[in-house]
Amino acid sequence: TTYKLIANGKTLKGETTTEAVDAETAERVFKEYAKKNGVDGEWTYDDATKTFTVTE
């Protein structure tokens, strides 16, 4: 399944996707990606669109 991340960070803005077996796995991947890019904010997830959003 393809999951999408929308990053609304102070230093990183944009979108990326990952293939994962479930939302929990995708969330781990995206949180690691955000951490590597210095983004720390509020996370939301929309199951209907398989989209995570992080906003600083």
Rank of each mutant, 00 (worst) to 15 (best):
residue 1 T to E: 11
residue 1 T to I: 15
residue 1 T to H: 13
residue 1 T to Q: 13
residue 1 T to P: 07
residue 1 T to L: 10
residue 1 T to V: 11
residue 1 T to W: 12
residue 1 T to M: 11
residue 2 T to H: 07
residue 2 T to R: 10
residue 2 T to Y: 08
residue 2 T to K: 11
residue 2 T to Q: 10
residue 3 Y to P: 01
residue 3 Y to H: 02
residue 3 Y to F: 12
residue 3 Y to C: 02
residue 3 Y to A: 01
residue 3 Y to N: 01
residue 4 K to D: 02
residue 4 K to E: 02
residue 4 K to V: 11
residue 4 K to R: 12
residue 5 L to D: 01
residue 5 L to C: 06
residue 5 L to V: 03
residue 5 L to K: 00
residue 5 L to P: 01
residue 5 L to H: 01
residue 5 L to W: 05
residue 5 L to R: 00
residue 5 L to T: 01
residue 6 I to Q: 06
residue 6 I to F: 06
residue 6 I to M: 07
residue 6 I to T: 05
residue 6 I to K: 07
residue 6 I to E: 04
residue 7 A to G: 05
residue 7 A to D: 04
residue 7 A to I: 15
residue 7 A to N: 05
residue 7 A to F: 15
residue 8 N to Y: 14
residue 8 N to F: 13
residue 8 N to E: 09
residue 8 N to R: 10
residue 8 N to A: 10
residue 9 G to C: 15
residue 9 G to P: 04
residue 9 G to D: 04
residue 9 G to W: 06
residue 9 G to S: 13
residue 9 G to I: 10
residue 10 K to V: 14
residue 10 K to H: 13
residue 10 K to N: 12
residue 10 K to S: 14
residue 10 K to E: 11
residue 10 K to L: 14
residue 10 K to Y: 11
residue 11 T to A: 09
residue 11 T to Q: 09
residue 11 T to W: 14
residue 11 T to P: 05
residue 11 T to R: 04
residue 11 T to K: 08
residue 11 T to L: 12
residue 12 L to W: 15
residue 12 L to F: 15
residue 12 L to P: 04
residue 12 L to Q: 07
residue 12 L to T: 07
residue 12 L to R: 03
residue 12 L to C: 14
residue 12 L to I: 09
residue 13 K to P: 09
residue 13 K to A: 10
residue 13 K to I: 13
residue 13 K to F: 13
residue 13 K to H: 12
residue 14 G to Q: 11
residue 14 G to Y: 15
residue 14 G to I: 15
residue 14 G to H: 14
residue 14 G to P: 08
residue 14 G to M: 14
residue 14 G to N: 09
residue 14 G to K: 10
residue 15 E to P: 06
residue 15 E to M: 09
residue 15 E to H: 08
residue 15 E to L: 09
residue 15 E to G: 06
residue 15 E to F: 09
residue 15 E to R: 05
residue 16 T to M: 14
residue 16 T to N: 05
residue 16 T to V: 15
residue 16 T to F: 15
residue 16 T to W: 15
residue 17 T to W: 14
residue 17 T to L: 09
residue 17 T to N: 06
residue 17 T to S: 10
residue 17 T to Y: 15
residue 18 T to S: 04
residue 18 T to Q: 05
residue 18 T to M: 13
residue 18 T to H: 07
residue 18 T to L: 14
residue 19 E to C: 13
residue 19 E to M: 13
residue 19 E to Y: 15
residue 19 E to V: 15
residue 19 E to Q: 14
residue 19 E to T: 13
residue 20 A to I: 02
residue 20 A to F: 05
residue 20 A to E: 04
residue 20 A to D: 03
residue 20 A to G: 04
residue 20 A to R: 02
residue 20 A to N: 03
residue 21 V to F: 12
residue 21 V to L: 12
residue 21 V to W: 12
residue 21 V to G: 09
residue 21 V to K: 14
residue 21 V to I: 14
residue 21 V to S: 12
residue 22 D to F: 03
residue 22 D to C: 05
residue 22 D to P: 01
residue 22 D to N: 10
residue 22 D to G: 04
residue 23 A to R: 15
residue 23 A to L: 10
residue 23 A to H: 10
residue 23 A to G: 04
residue 23 A to E: 07
residue 24 E to W: 09
residue 24 E to I: 13
residue 24 E to R: 09
residue 24 E to Q: 11
residue 24 E to F: 10
residue 25 T to R: 06
residue 25 T to G: 07
residue 25 T to E: 15
residue 25 T to C: 06
residue 25 T to I: 08
residue 25 T to S: 14
residue 25 T to W: 07
residue 26 A to C: 01
residue 26 A to L: 01
residue 26 A to N: 00
residue 26 A to V: 02
residue 26 A to K: 00
residue 27 E to T: 04
residue 27 E to I: 08
residue 27 E to R: 09
residue 27 E to Q: 09
residue 27 E to D: 04
residue 28 R to D: 05
residue 28 R to M: 10
residue 28 R to N: 08
residue 28 R to V: 08
residue 28 R to L: 10
residue 28 R to S: 08
residue 28 R to Q: 11
residue 29 V to A: 08
residue 29 V to Q: 08
residue 29 V to P: 00
residue 29 V to G: 04
residue 29 V to L: 13
residue 29 V to C: 08
residue 29 V to T: 10
residue 29 V to W: 15
residue 30 F to T: 00
residue 30 F to N: 00
residue 30 F to A: 00
residue 30 F to S: 00
residue 30 F to Q: 00
residue 30 F to P: 00
residue 31 K to E: 03
residue 31 K to W: 06
residue 31 K to I: 06
residue 31 K to L: 06
residue 31 K to P: 00
residue 31 K to C: 05
residue 31 K to Y: 06
residue 31 K to D: 02
residue 32 E to W: 06
residue 32 E to I: 08
residue 32 E to F: 05
residue 32 E to C: 07
residue 32 E to Y: 06
residue 33 Y to T: 04
residue 33 Y to V: 06
residue 33 Y to W: 15
residue 33 Y to N: 03
residue 33 Y to C: 05
residue 33 Y to M: 06
residue 33 Y to D: 02
residue 34 A to M: 10
residue 34 A to C: 14
residue 34 A to V: 09
residue 34 A to G: 03
residue 34 A to Q: 02
residue 34 A to Y: 04
residue 35 K to W: 11
residue 35 K to F: 12
residue 35 K to E: 11
residue 35 K to R: 14
residue 36 K to E: 13
residue 36 K to T: 11
residue 36 K to S: 13
residue 36 K to W: 08
residue 36 K to M: 13
residue 37 N to L: 12
residue 37 N to F: 13
residue 37 N to S: 07
residue 37 N to A: 10
residue 37 N to T: 06
residue 37 N to H: 15
residue 37 N to V: 11
residue 38 G to H: 08
residue 38 G to N: 10
residue 38 G to K: 07
residue 38 G to Q: 08
residue 38 G to P: 02
residue 38 G to D: 06
residue 38 G to V: 03
residue 38 G to C: 06
residue 38 G to L: 05
residue 38 G to E: 06
residue 39 V to L: 15
residue 39 V to Q: 05
residue 39 V to P: 02
residue 39 V to H: 05
residue 39 V to A: 04
residue 39 V to I: 14
residue 39 V to E: 03
residue 39 V to N: 03
residue 39 V to D: 02
residue 39 V to G: 03
residue 40 D to K: 11
residue 40 D to A: 11
residue 40 D to S: 12
residue 40 D to W: 14
residue 40 D to I: 14
residue 40 D to Q: 12
residue 40 D to C: 13
residue 40 D to T: 13
residue 40 D to L: 12
residue 40 D to V: 14
residue 41 G to E: 02
residue 41 G to A: 03
residue 41 G to W: 06
residue 41 G to P: 02
residue 41 G to V: 03
residue 42 E to Y: 13
residue 42 E to W: 13
residue 42 E to G: 05
residue 42 E to M: 12
residue 42 E to D: 13
residue 42 E to Q: 13
residue 42 E to L: 13
residue 43 W to I: 03
residue 43 W to V: 02
residue 43 W to P: 00
residue 43 W to M: 04
residue 43 W to F: 04
residue 43 W to E: 00
residue 43 W to T: 01
residue 44 T to M: 10
residue 44 T to I: 08
residue 44 T to Q: 09
residue 44 T to P: 00
residue 44 T to R: 09
residue 44 T to H: 12
residue 44 T to N: 09
residue 44 T to V: 10
residue 45 Y to L: 02
residue 45 Y to I: 01
residue 45 Y to M: 01
residue 45 Y to F: 07
residue 45 Y to N: 00
residue 45 Y to Q: 00
residue 45 Y to P: 00
residue 45 Y to E: 00
residue 46 D to M: 04
residue 46 D to E: 07
residue 46 D to V: 05
residue 46 D to S: 06
residue 46 D to Q: 04
residue 46 D to K: 03
residue 47 D to C: 08
residue 47 D to N: 08
residue 47 D to A: 15
residue 47 D to K: 09
residue 48 A to I: 12
residue 48 A to F: 10
residue 48 A to M: 11
residue 48 A to D: 12
residue 48 A to K: 14
residue 49 T to K: 07
residue 49 T to G: 04
residue 49 T to A: 07
residue 49 T to R: 06
residue 49 T to I: 06
residue 49 T to S: 10
residue 50 K to I: 02
residue 50 K to N: 08
residue 50 K to G: 04
residue 50 K to E: 03
residue 51 T to P: 00
residue 51 T to M: 04
residue 51 T to V: 06
residue 51 T to A: 04
residue 51 T to G: 02
residue 52 F to T: 01
residue 52 F to P: 00
residue 52 F to K: 00
residue 52 F to I: 01
residue 52 F to V: 01
residue 52 F to D: 00
residue 52 F to E: 00
residue 52 F to R: 00
residue 52 F to W: 06
residue 53 T to Q: 06
residue 53 T to V: 08
residue 53 T to I: 08
residue 53 T to S: 06
residue 53 T to M: 09
residue 54 V to S: 01
residue 54 V to W: 04
residue 54 V to A: 02
residue 54 V to G: 00
residue 55 T to L: 07
residue 55 T to H: 08
residue 55 T to W: 11
residue 55 T to R: 06
residue 55 T to G: 05
residue 55 T to S: 09
residue 55 T to D: 07
residue 55 T to P: 01
residue 55 T to Q: 09
residue 56 E to A: 08
residue 56 E to S: 07
residue 56 E to Y: 08
residue 56 E to T: 07
residue 56 E to G: 05
